[in-house]
């Protein structure tokens, strides 16, 4: 399966993002997501993963961020010219970091807000609601409880389900594993994989949990201080010595103490 040759649904070309006119966060990030692919965007805190996703979904404006250079194309269309709700209508939706469910709305109402941009009638929305409940049976049990009182895992499911209600072609998934038990993380990623296979939804997911992300993704990019420092097939990345050492916590010679990690090493190898 060679997905890099497939049509890109999303291409980000050398973008630069500045917050508040002064803080340069992304310094030329390029990436592509093939149609039907799962692409992982990896990196540490503050590397620029979330900023990249928000640039794609055009949510930066609300945070006084601005794409100053480069271009983002979703299905060949310039994203910067579209409003966030236009993008959702066209099938590109973001699931934000930290779930962001509407706390005072019930789970079902949360899901229904996801269908806000749709104009294809109540019956079709009802049908999709049942579909979401089929993927996340737990949401069906909690459908009438206020989202603010549900567990972290349920909220993450609710957030993904809500995005699904917009009938997306691509979901930008920001840190789905945040604050969840390992078992639950696997469960969420299994569903992502299933959605990708059955519904044909493409995913761009930002993750710190490199290990899980690279097992489910087909391709990966590694961000460091606003630059892509490494990219490749997920399998290749998993076997890359530097990724192992810096992100998976195992060095070539088995486990190592942090005392021996040499920081100049990665500068030399990746930024040369």
């Amino acid at each position: 399966m060679n997905e890099t040759s497939a049509n890109p649904i999303l291409s980000v070309n050398n973008i630069e993002v500045i917050y508040d006119h002064v803080i340069l966060v992304l310094k030329g990030v390029s990436l592509t997501v093939p149609e039907g692919g799962i692409v992982a965007l990896l990196g540490a805190n503050g590397a620029g993963k979330t900023t990249t996703l928000k640039a794609v979904s055009n949510l930066l404006g609300a945070e006084r961020g601005d794409v100053t250079k480069g271009a983002i194309l979703f299905e060949g269309e310039e994203v910067q010219a579209l409003s966030p709700n236009d993008l959702v209508k066209r099938g590109c939706i973001q699931v934000m970091e930290g779930r962001h469910c509407f706390g005072h709305l019930t789970i079902e109402e949360n899901l229904l807000t996801g269908a806000y941009t749709r104009r294809d009638g109540a019956a079709a929305i009802r049908q999709d609601l049942d579909k979401v409940y089929a993927y996340f049976p737990r949401l069906k049990e909690r459908r009438s409880s206020q989202a603010g009182y549900t567990s972290g895992g349920e909220q993450q499911m609710c957030a993904i389900g809500r995005a699904l209600m917009s009938r997306p072609k691509m979901i930008l998934l920001d840190e789905p594993s945040m604050g969840l038990a390992p078992q639950l993380v696997e469960e969420i990623f299994e569903i992502v994989k299933e959605l990708n296979r059955k519904e044909g939804v493409s995913f761009l997911l930002a993750e710190q949990n490199t290990n899980v992300a690279l097992r489910y993704a087909t391709y990966g990019y590694i961000l460091e201080s606003g630059r892509i420092v490494l990219d490749g097939d997920a399998k290749a990345l998993r076997e890359n010595e530097d990724v192992k050492e810096f992100y998976l916590g195992v060095g070539g010679e088995g486990r190592r103490s942090f005392r021996n990690v040499k920081h100049y090493k990665r500068r030399k190898r990746w930024l040369a």
């Binding site: 949510l59 609300a62 934000m96 509407f102 005072h104 941009t117």
Partner: peptide
Amino acid sequence: DDHQAALSVGI
């Protein structure tokens, strides 16, 4: 409830 999230779902 949440401006940001509302924006993100296309409101």
